[in-house]
Amino acid sequence: MVTKEEVKHLSWLSRFDLSDEELSKYTAQIEQIISYLDKLDSMPLENVEPVKAKKNLADLRNDQATNFAGEVLGTKYRKDGFVKAPRMV
């Protein structure tokens, strides 16, 4: 059972501003989706490792520094090279 309170908390964790109407709608839909995902519970419990990609240490990037050429910031709200951001109150 997915509750409205849970969805409210999750939308806070995801930084969404949801109206009460949206909250009710999402709660109902996510409840439906989650109960579908619960199908995983009926999977025969086997001692299988979860999938994961692997790589050897030797294949990792070497420690060399290079500068990126070009503008990487896409905001016009800037000051003296800094990016303007909301206050951290």
């Binding site: 997915v2 849970e6 969805v7 999750l10 939308s11 964790l13 995801s14 969404f16 949801l18 999402y26 839909q29 996510i30 989706i33 989650i34 995902l37």
Partner: peptide
């Protein structure tokens, strides 16, 4: 997108 993000947050919480 919001629906999937909230769902994903749920399964990871």
């Amino acid at each position: 997108v919001k629906r999937r993000i909230i769902t994903g947050s749920y399964v990871l919480s």
